[in-house]
């Protein structure tokens, strides 16, 4: 299971990376915005994408749309972990095809629950 973590703050990437490792996912890579993430997703074989929303360059929402529009990536499970908390945004993310939405600040238990739920549905 190879996971890409996208967030513009290195501390947040590190927190998510640690939490994922505790859940048994040790094969993770990091990117700091959509523009860096998209080529990585296209060239590497990733099984899961965890992304922030608000980032300079390409936002997580645009990244989500780009992933869904890409023939090879459109089925990639995407979990959004973000401080964006407007109802409209959550609805928009759902419509754009997000698989899970975790609002910051979050707990390890919430992240675990959402990830398990996503994998449950895929299997």
């Amino acid at each position: 299971m190879r996971i890409l973590i996208v967030d513009d703050f290195s501390t947040m990437r590190r927190i998510i990376k640690n939490l994922l490792r505790d859940l048994g996912f040790t094969n993770t890579d990091e990117a700091d915005d959509g523009n860096t993430a998209l080529p990585m997703l296209r060239s590497g074989k990733y099984d899961f994408l965890v992304t922030d929303w608000n980032m300079p360059g390409m936002s997580g929402f645009d990244l989500l749309k780009a992933v869904r529009a890409d023939e090879n990536l459109k089925n990639l499970p995407v979990l959004m972990v973000t401080a964006e908390a407007k109802r409209d945004q959550i609805v928009a993310a759902a419509q754009a095809g997000v698989n899970g939405y975790v609002v910051k600040p979050f707990t390890a238990a919430v992240l675990k629950e959402k990830i398990e739920k996503i994998f449950e549905r895929i299997q």
């Binding site: 936002s59 997580g60 929402f61 964006e84 908390a85 407007k86 109802r87 975790v102 609002v103 910051k104």
Partner: peptide
Amino acid sequence: AEKGVGPQINADRREDVVSGQDDVDDL
């Protein structure tokens, strides 16, 4: 909203903003 607006201050007093993960899950 597409680019992202960052954390919401006084979220509990606003209708258009979720107040936490439970709200997100309900929505």
